[in-house]
Amino acid sequence: MNGWHVPDDLRAAYLDGGLPEAAAMSVEVHVASCQGCQAAFPVQEEWLEESWAAIADVVDRPAPRPLTRGLTALGMPEHVAVFLAATPGLTRSWLLGVAGALGFAVAAAHAADRSMLVFLAVAPVLPLLGIAAAYGARVDALYEVASAAPISGGRVLLLRAMAVLVAALLVTGAATPALPAFTAAWLLPSLALTGAALALGPLLAPHRASALLAAGWLAAVPAGREAVFGAPAQAAYAMALIPFVYLGARRWNRL
């Protein structure tokens, strides 16, 4: 800039606000493109570092996964949301699988006479699929690392199972309007099977417990709609939930 630089007294006047407008403008225009004059501005080291730390924290913060963002928006603590977003059972492929299975069940309900039975049979199994994939040496690549962490495996499994359950229930609930007739008969068996899978936790790995229960359930469904989904059966599912919830709560508190 023709060898001209902002003299010290001019800069001082500019900084304390006492410089007439025209001079201030020329200082500003010059400083914007003169590295030497930029460097001549006084620096408060402490302010600079603090200001930088705040910026680094923002720009270097990875964008939260969509699931994390959604969960924190619902009021979940941030660290729990980040944790749940890592659930192997909550990947897009799992959700797509659940949606696909539901699509099939809904289609079957429209096509066949015995219709709703397929849907009712499939819906309660879906959360089990998620739980099978939620935690364990076979399904979680970081299982060995997680096993050495102070957070307990039981808590990891429960948190993830709850997340998977909620996701499965939401997707299943969303499919209900597409059915020929309204039904909520799948809900209690779904909860009972999930509870049973978790209650079996100390005895069986999640994927084994889930497979066992799913097989048992699918074997029981042909017994007929009334036997499996009638009022007495529903009452039994609700009753079964009580010890499962109790066991779950006890395990949770022991963790």
């Binding site: 900084l15 500003e28 400083v31 004059c37 930029q38 501005f41 620096v43 600079l48």
Partner: peptide
Amino acid sequence: RLEALRVLHHRHAPWLRARLAR
């Protein structure tokens, strides 16, 4: 590269701050 942003920040933040303050 974060380090480059840090250098830019340290170079430009003081005069930008003064100009904004006006």
